[in-house]
């Protein structure tokens, strides 16, 4: 099957049942996407499929045959990365790729989100280190 990840075309061979997260990490070596809970609870594995944030740990790779996937590696040049660094919006960093993917999806549709909008859109990304106030600050100030 065919997968377009960050603008590049890939051929994926995993058997049916393989998740998108496993295919990205193991077959394509795109290890920026993290797997923590592996069952849809934490948001660490968030990627964009056709521009919408979804959980790659419970998405079958065969179900996104032909879709456009964006991972944290594809957001290298997005100003949200600098915003997270400026606001010191992480501690251990394990949740950060998922946080940034969700944050980018939010500001692409709502460039100046309110606190309420930030909290609603980011509710599916848990941070065990509790960096939430800084994450919120990064998203509020991402435009510099």
């Amino acid at each position: 099957m065919q997968l377009t990840v960050n603008g590049h075309q890939y051929e994926v061979h995993g058997e049916v049942g393989t998740t998108l997260a496993e295919a990205l990490r193991e077959e394509l070596s795109l290890t920026g996407t993290k797997i923590a809970c592996g069952e849809g609870h934490c948001g660490a594995c968030t990627v964009l499929v056709d521009d919408e944030p979804v959980l790659s740990c419970i998405t079958l790779v065969h179900a996104v045959d032909g879709a456009r996937v964006t991972t944290i590696e594809g957001l290298r040049d997005h100003p949200m990365i600098d915003a997270f660094v400026r606001s010191d919006a992480l501690q251990c960093g394990f949740c950060t790729p998922g946080q940034i993917v969700s944050a980018v999806a939010l500001v692409e549709s709502e460039p100046a989100p309110t606190t309420e909008q930030i909290r609603h859109a980011m509710a599916g990304n848990l941070c065990r280190c509790g960096a939430y106030p800084k994450i919120e600050e990064a998203i509020r100030t991402w435009q510099g």
């Binding site: 849809g40 948001g43 968030t46 919408e52 944030p53 979804v54 959980l55 419970i58 998405t59 969700s102 609603h120 859109a121 980011m122 509710a123 599916g124």
Partner: peptide, 12 residues
Amino acid sequence: CRLAASPQLRNM
């Protein structure tokens, strides 16, 4: 719907 699950799950 707004209060169910998380944004990613509601997209899916």
